[in-house]
């Protein structure tokens, strides 16, 4: 099996601060991989090491089989990177940004024409292309950055918090485009995010990172399944008898039953499969069911379990800095 990315025991220190702590990771080719973690977890640091911006303090990392330290030059020809912060020139037009980048990357005049047209089209920027970037909205700027990144047809796209600070509708369209790109051209996408829902909806695999440690790597489904069982909550009109509860415990797949007055909380491997048996057992014990609800574990539950903290990070630090920069750009 060829791995697009493989990371061995990578650590990174800034002075005394340990930003990455012996990270090990393998990502298969063609995958959409999400690095999920709160602010300060070390996501940006890992992305910047993988894009050859600086060396790890210890450990080794390979991208597309190239060592990020010794084969950086070769590797940089194959990857694209969109940093967390804004990364286009705002005092020229969107088209000119693409033009200059395509020249820096050495696309021939003919390749250039097609590549610019296609990437503008992909990101719905054809009409706005000749406007100054300083008149663009935050979402359009992000799309232009992505257009720059896909224009050179990289093997891997590294995206650092690609949808940070954008509204939900724009986030959704951006992800649909990236998904389509991944499906159609097999481009790997390696992105960081602190939005749980994004990792869950769009990634093939999620790596949970917190305080420099990569804690768990799994698919969204595996993650959710690994957390806990489904929960079925039953509310009755009167207190539920002990015998009714103990009958439930004997059902296959039910791992735990807790009764609190009129309410029962039943943990089961799969609520869909057990619901019939649960209702049948309750009815035979003459329990009057007033309300019944099922709860599937979410990626938030998974994050809480592995990282030990709530994932939905507060918008502090870097993000407010980003907002400030975007603000400044808007003002021109």
């Amino acid at each position: 099996m060829d791995f697009a990315i493989s990371v061995h025991n990578v650590s990174k220190k800034y002075g005394t601060l340990l930003a990455l702590d012996k990270v090990n990771l393998k990502v298969e080719e063609g995958k959409l991989f999400a690095l999920l973690g709160p602010n300060g977890a070390g996501k940006t640091t890992l992305l910047r090491i993988l894009t050859t911006q600086f060396e790890p303090t210890s450990g080794e990392a390979f991208v597309l089989g190239r060592n990020v330290v010794t084969q950086g030059e070769e590797l940089r020809e194959l990857i694209s990177y969109v940093p967390q912060e804004m990364s286009v020139w705002t005092d020229i037009s969107g088209y000119e940004n693409l033009l200059i980048y395509s020249k820096i990357y050495g696309l021939s005049a003919e390749e250039r024409k097609n590549a610019i047209r296609d990437s503008l089209q992909l990101m719905d920027l054809t009409e706005a292309a000749n406007r100054l970037v300083s008149t663009f909205s935050g979402g359009m700027i992000r799309k232009l950055e992505l257009a720059c990144a896909v224009m050179i047809k990289p093997k891997i796209l590294f995206l650092d918090e690609p949808t940070i600070g954008l509204d939900p509708a724009t986030r959704k369209t951006i992800w649909e485009k990236l998904k389509a790109l991944n499906r159609e051209s097999g481009t790997n996408v390696f992105f960081s995010t602190h939005y749980m829902d994004e990792a869950e909806l769009y990634a093939d695999e999620i790596g949970i990172i917190n305080r420099g440690k990569l804690i768990k790597v799994a698919s969204p489904d595996e993650l959710k399944r690994s957390v806990s069982s489904d929960l079925v909550t039953v509310e009755s009109s009167s207190e539920v008898s002990r015998s009714a509860a103990s009958h439930l415990r004997k059902l296959r797949d039910v791992s735990c039953v807790e009764s609190k007055g009129n309410t029962l909380e039943i943990s089961t491997r799969s609520s869909e499969e057990s619901l019939g048996a649960i209702v049948k057992s309750l009815l035979s014990d003459k329990v009057v069911i007033k309300r019944i609800a099922t709860h599937k574990p979410s990626i938030d539950d998974a994050f809480l379990r592995y990282a030990g903290t709530k994932g939905s990070a507060q918008d502090t630090g870097r993000l407010s800095e980003l907002k400030r920069i975007r603000e400044r750009i808007r003002r021109g």
């Binding site: 911006q53 030059e73 940089r76 990177y81 969109v82 912060e85 804004m86 990364s87 286009v88």
Partner: peptide
Amino acid sequence: RESGILKKLVASPSP
């Protein structure tokens, strides 16, 4: 530098 342009240039093939 404050925006991400330099990071992007450093990650590009230009020496």
